[in-house]
């Protein structure tokens, strides 16, 4: 695998006036609640190590207060770490001068916010071209770029309106267009879709995936919603109390949860829709009578549909005209049962 675009190494963040003093406590294993009770300092992040690959969507998931916003704000240094490294293309942004940092924020990364955070006194077009204006790009070029991206997110004709004249979903489209217009290769999205209603939310997820197929940005996406995480993630990171509980391919985490916390998280998910054939297929060969062939990216719902109630159905998994494995209903049934703590004991 190539070098990661963003690499976070041993990152700690303690909130409070005397963070440095309590760092050794945390390093020697003091937890979040203990630190808060006995020393009145909040442990924001606890030994975070994540590699985010270029062109991938890395999703950071966790419950409220688990430190997601804190983590994403370290990537553009809106929050200063207590200790640790944040490497961007191999360079530690902690060593950046103020001017370098501003350059990086202008050119290399842009951010989409949960509450949109548009400038209320500027029109939609001015908002969208804000990033380029900061960079000193001429009005003509930045408005051209702005219009292009507004068209791309489906907001043509709203250029001269003010944000408060748009619905929430439209405002977030402006937010996305604003982030895309500045033409950076990293996109930081902090619960970008959480304030939207479910239908609009699905729309926006589809829009993001569609844009991503052409743009191949490095996206850091934050959510507290597992369905959203599974839909978008190439790499999934699960946070709890400021620490990473598990990270990896989402399918892998679904099938091999490492922690009761994660088992609880994934218990209510519709596994048939989320799990894909590739993650559960068998590479060996149990026989060569197949009811049909199937794509490795198909989800289990499709397999169930194809089996048409036949409990002995077996399918050959074909990718690029090559057999890469097989899947049968017994395998499928096994994968559909969530890995619960009580079943694990038996």
């Amino acid at each position: 695998m190539s070098d990661p675009k963003i690499r976070i190494r041993n990152l700690y963040k303690i909130f409070g006036a005397r963070a440095g003093k309590y760092l050794p406590h945390v390093l020697s294993g003091m937890g979040k609640s203990e630190l808060l009770e006995s020393h009145g300092h909040a442990l924001g992040l606890n030994n975070i190590n994540i590699d985010m690959q270029a062109g991938e969507i890395s999703v950071i998931m966790g419950l409220s207060g688990s430190g997601k916003s804190t983590l994403i704000r370290h990537i553009n240094r809106l929050i200063e770490p207590t200790s640790g490294e944040i490497l961007l293309d191999g360079q530690d942004i902690m060593r950046f001068s103020q001017a370098d940092l501003l350059q990086t924020r202008q050119k290399s990364m842009s951010m989409v916010f949960q509450n949109f955070a548009l400038l209320p006194h500027r029109t939609v077009l001015q908002n969208v071209s804000m990033g380029l204006k900061v960079q000193g790009v001429t009005k003509e070029i930045r408005e051209h770029e702005g219009r292009k991206w507004l068209l791309r997110v489906g907001l043509k004709g709203h250029e001269s309106q003010y944000p408060n004249q748009l619905s929430g979903g439209m405002q977030q489209r402006v937010g996305i267009a604003r982030a895309l217009t500045s033409n950076s290769d990293i996109l930081l999205m902090d619960e970008a879709f959480s304030a939207l209603d479910p239908l609009i939310r699905t729309d926006m997820q589809d829009l993001l995936l569609e844009l991503q197929t052409e743009l191949h940005k490095t996206i850091v996406f934050i959510t507290h919603d597992l369905d959203e995480a599974l839909k978008l993630a190439d790499h999934l990171v699960i946070l709890k109390d400021g620490a990473v509980v598990q990270q990896g391919k989402p399918q892998h985490i679904l099938l091999n949860p490492s922690d009761p916390y994660i088992e609880e998280f994934i218990a209510d998910i519709n596994r048939a829709r989320v799990l894909r054939v590739r993650s559960i297929m068998r590479h060996s060969n149990l026989g060569n009578e197949y009811s049909g062939t199937i794509d490795p990216e198909a989800n289990l719902e499709q397999v169930i549909g194809m089996a048409q109630g036949d409990m002995s159905a077996r399918f050959e998994v074909i990718e690029n005209n090559q057999r890469i494995g097989e899947v049968d209903v017994a395998l499928l049934m096994d994968a559909l049962v969530p890995y619960r703590p009580d079943t694990a004991k038996r």
């Binding site: 940092l101 350059q103 990086t104 202008q106 842009s110 916010f113 400038l119 960079q135 930081l188």
Partner: peptide, 20 residues
């Protein structure tokens, strides 16, 4: 939030003061 957005897009202190 708006101030944070201004920071995230790399505005310097003067741009932030006059523009936001």
């Amino acid at each position: 939030d708006v101030i944070e957005a201004a920071d995230a897009f790399g505005m310097n202190a003067r741009q932030k003061l006059l523009g936001v």
